[in-house]
Design a protein around this nucleic acid. Structure first.
Lengths: 341, 341
DNA sequence: CCCGTTTCGTGCACCGTTCTACGTAAATCA
DNA sequence: TGATTTACGTAGAACGGTGCACGAAACGGG
């Protein structure tokens, strides 16, 4: 039946199989696949029939050696970060409509791993890259950006020339929190950040810290500025948290750089019998689903992940289409007020 | 630094660039890369020096056209499922040590998407595939398994001949829950599952249901067997939950097929002022981090994701090394008892 | 009716690897 | 020393596509 013709043995159906079956040249099949110029309806029909019949799928690997792969790489910091799903979904909504596929790399928040994954994606001939919350230095990014179109999400590099950045305005997000605290009459407002280990100012935590400091000053609370730093996620952190919570001069309100820290902190407070918000007000960042649970009821800044993802994908496409000048977008986050505030 | 050397103008440094730089043949460089037989120390040193100097990295795409890519594909159901991180980490621990890279596909729990992703991975010439909690039918899997080594996690297909399956023993996990409930004196124990929409018996939810039913019968509670089905995740489900919780014959204890449902259900109970566990005992599955939060304190079955991942990766490697006979493993889950029980 | 344009289809040279087959020089054996 | 073996290195044909350059046919205007 199908592949009877040439009596070839087993194996994969390649472009040649299709060409033989349809009685046309290999180039013709290629043209149809890419719907390139110069294909008559008759030819197209013949070829499409054969493709259908044989179930032909072009090899991405082979295709990538000369043309495009129609595959984009998305590099994620990890897999359990609450703000990733929204962004991913936003990206996907755009790329799917454009007929592009996505391959994901999971970076585990370690720079060398992330670099390897980027190289891996370049070596796999992806057509473009979206890096989400990468920790890689701007200089390194410029280096990679010379090899492949890149858009970065969740990493502030407003001077970058070789790639685009899409962010929520982290400084404004922090300011929202300070203002909301202040409006409720709190003055002793602290910021809880992750360890500075390997931090760049480009990362979101320092940006939020900057926004916090600026807003505190603007509110006339400059002398109440206090910053606590927790050990990296993965290390034991209960001690550090307990220290913050049991100190005599415990702050009246804390703004956590991420729900990733706000939630454990809130849990620790609960365990210690500290009432939220009567004794301690807490606000996080990323508006993760857990924060929205009624038992948590944690106020949090929402950065609209789906929109970020959508904008990132669109920026990537426009860059892939030849735009050379860098785009740097910042969208406005909103504060989702809940009982912890 | 690295790529300064020759100050070459154009593109990428390929195997030819290296060969020219080292003054040897292309084949020689290839041999060094694959550390194949028949390379003198002198040659190897020369070539390695050039590789280092030029910062050469072989193209995975090109390599894939003839040899191996040293890349594995991992297909995940989604990105926000609490039991994925553990599994992924387990996989990674094995593959990283073996020098293999991972590319992830995110399936969104829709069969056509998943099929496309698998094809995509085959087309990208991955060396093997691990499918986590796929919904694809066994028959289709056998079809793909003829093209590429496959290991499936979180999907029961004990009769499969072309691929391996690695699972926790979902039926036993369910039995643990029923026994624990019963030991506390509860008899009116219900099971809450997801919609049967597109379900196979191979999926975990029906397996857990089976385990639940069997254990209920064994405990002499056959006439207390009750199964509720919630709408798919993504659809509005509050109504359905409220219906369960406010019914006159509300069960005394519920076992949820996943924390993904147990947590919202518990939240809804909280909102309705139903005390857990005094009025309603709840146990979930997957022991997600949220369940462990002191405010939630949700008992849950732990299936040891890291171990599952590790076993899956090991099975895949042994299969890639030529094993033909299928392996089907089931590890024993444990019940993590917490306040909700 | 002739000749310049289009339109359509094909041949073929890539892309960056792997890997088989082969040539040659050195080492071993009888 | 001549005949084998062994070790090393290389040419060149894949692999499965893309896309340029080209030729043939169809078209159309003067």
């Amino acid at each position: 039946m199908a592949d009877g013709g040439t009596g070839e043995a087993a194996g994969r159906v390649t472009i040649r199989t299709v060409a033989a079956d349809a009685g046309v040249s290999v180039a013709a099949v290629s043209k149809v696949m890419r719907n390139a110029y110069g294909v008559s309806d008759a030819l197209r029909l013949k070829v499409e029939a054969s493709i259908e019949k044989l179930g032909y799928r072009p090899s991405v690997a082979a295709r990538g050696m000369r043309g495009r792969t129609f595959t984009l790489g998305v590099l994620l910091v990890g897999i359990d970060n609450p703000f990733l799903p929204g962004i991913y979904q936003g990206i996907e909504s755009v790329t799917e409509a454009a007929g592009y596929k996505i391959m994901v790399g999971v970076g585990a928040a370690r720079t060398p791993t992330e670099v390897q994954l980027i190289e891996q994606m370049i070596d796999n001939r992806m057509d473009g890259l979206i890096l989400v919350a990468t920790q890689i230095a701007g200089e390194t990014l410029e280096h990679f950006a010379r090899q492949i179109p890149i858009v970065v999400v969740g990493h502030h590099e407003p001077e970058a020339v070789g790639y685009d950045t899409i962010n929520n305005h982290d400084q404004n997000g922090a300011a929202l929190v300070v203002q909301a605290f202040h409006a409720r009459g709190y003055t002793d407002i602290a910021y809880v950040s992750q360890s500075e280990q390997g931090d760049h100012l480009a990362d979101v935590a320092p940006q939020r810290e900057l926004g916090y400091r600026t807003a505190m000053e603007k509110a006339g609370l400059a002398d109440h500025i206090r910053v606590f730093r927790l050990p990296q996620i993965g290390l034991p952190r209960e001690d550090a948290m307990r220290q913050i919570l049991t100190a005599k001069d415990r702050p009246r309100a804390v703004f956590c750089w991420s729900d990733l820290d706000a939630i454990p902190l809130m849990s620790e407070a609960y365990r210690l019998g500290i009432r939220v918000p009567d004794e301690l007000a807490i606000v996080g960042y990323d508006n993760s689903p857990v924060a929205a649970l009624p038992m948590m009821d944690l106020a949090s800044v929402d950065q609209n992940g789906p929109l970020l993802g959508k904008l990132a994908a669109e920026a990537l496409f426009s860059r892939m289409n030849g735009r050379k000048v860098a785009n740097h977008l910042a969208i406005e986050p909103i504060l989702v007020k809940r009982g912890s505030l």
